[in-house]
Design a protein around this nucleic acid. Structure first.
Lengths: 245, 245
DNA sequence: TTAGTTAGATGCAGATCGCATATATGGTGC
DNA sequence: GCACCATATATGCGATCTGCATCTAACTAA
């Protein structure tokens, strides 16, 4: 960047700066489908609409730290899988002022998702409806999880529907060459649970023997010898995720 | 975000805001390897070091628009393939002040890369040395393209070496399921040229018959019937990229 | 006309994947 | 204890994909 441009920007009064925020998609799985935790907006704009937890980035705060703070303050969660998604900077996204928002994706295994949902009553668990296959992209709808079967989709504030859609898109894209799938599982899990996670994210059924072979041949799974309890049929072996060096 | 936090941030005097910038990786291919266009910094900090072209984001300017402006002003280029990479927000990245930077990747076919390099003498074409395979990640070194064979690596300013590494990483990841490869080619190209692009990005040789089959079976290539000229051997057919709907 | 060089096609072995099916192992009900 | 059930786990096979060697085609240069 040129020095005169820098000097102009160096004086905050000379040029107005966009505000910088982070928004975090708190993603888990419920009933075999992706689900997110949303907050109901009380004030204008988008009063009554549902929004992702978010917050402004402090002047002495890293982007990652801001996302972790949001996670801690709004969901009572520490240190799940957290990754940056994309930065949204269109002009009209917040009608009050110019806000550029860095979107983050947090992956919550069932226990953490439930704990956040119960510990923070204002967080609404919402089932995500992804009407497209593969990595096509497109809008994503959110539906209340509690309550009866059929209900109206939740109205999402700002461009948060786009952020949710991007979260699914990224997850689908990374699912089978990275280790993100394991971030949605407890430390010990069965191959069936792992397959359930993949099926929920991808939104399609997978072939069981092929899936098992692929996962076991990858060498990321360590058999523990222990078996799951509580089933009324043959118990499955519990595996542990071995980080691929 | 809560309303009190919003009100505090609404008043720019109440809380200091990070400055927001974009940095653009101008990527092309030279001598069968990835290459980028860099600017030599005149002033402190990192005087004499090499940096990505960049600029501050205007208050009424989209992130994409800021990247396009940088491309136009610093490289004289309009409308290449341009995509957002990642947002860098660590605390010490600029010693003068807190700057959060949204990194963009611009892909330049040979003609555009050469035109920018010649039209803007301050832009230095630099060969990128990627010492890792696949999508492992790690540092990337830049070497001057002009001049003699062996020379010292260029000292890169700020965290721009990380940004270059991420650009290569993304490109490698997207190369064979997306259409980014075609952004580095002219409108009409031969299968050999397409393979050269893939080999340069991936940093490894590919099997010719397998590559041809894969590309032709994908259905994105339209044979034009025309053939390349100027070769002293059998001329290859020219293809056109057909956007996959 | 011949040699040289690259484009483009073909055949085949090994790996991968989807799918059907067989066997193993726990609990449950009698 | 024993048949039965539901699921885990293993196996076999055909279709597809990939890497690789090799073959044929087409153009230039001499």
């Amino acid at each position: 960047m040129s020095e005169d441009a820098f000097l102009a920007a160096y004086d905050p009064a000379a040029y107005e700066r966009p505000a910088l925020a982070v928004d975090v998609v708190l993603l888990g799985l419920r009933e075999g489908r992706p689900a997110a935790l949303l907050l109901r907006r009380a004030q204008h704009p988008f009063a009554g609409f549902w929004a992702l937890p978010g917050g402004f980035v402090g002047i002495g705060e890293t982007l990652d730290a801001a996302a972790e703070r949001v996670l801690r303050e709004k969901a009572g969660i520490a240190a799940p899988h957290l990754e940056q998604l994309y930065t949204f900077g269109t002009l009209g996204r917040d009608p009050r002022m110019r806000i550029v928002s860095v979107a983050y994706l947090a992956l919550l295994p069932d226990r953490a998702f439930a704990a956040a949902s119960e510990g923070m009553p204002e967080l609404m668990p919402a089932r995500l409806d992804v009407p497209w296959r593969g990595e096509a992209g497109g809008p994503v709808a959110a539906f209340p999880l509690q309550g009866s079967a059929r209900s109206e989709p939740l109205s999402l504030a700002f461009d948060h529907a786009d952020i949710l859609a991007l979260a699914i898109l990224r997850l689908r894209g990374k699912l089978d060459y990275s280790d993100v799938g394991f971030a949605l599982l407890p430390e010990l899990f069965t191959l069936r649970q792992l397959q359930d996670v993949h099926e929920a994210i991808l939104g399609l059924p997978l072939n069981k023997p092929a899936f098992r072979r692929r996962m076991l041949d990858r060498g990321w799974l360590e058999p523990t010898g222990a078996r799951e309890a509580g089933s009324s049929f043959r118990p499955a072996e519990l595996y542990r995720f071995l980080r691929p060096r």
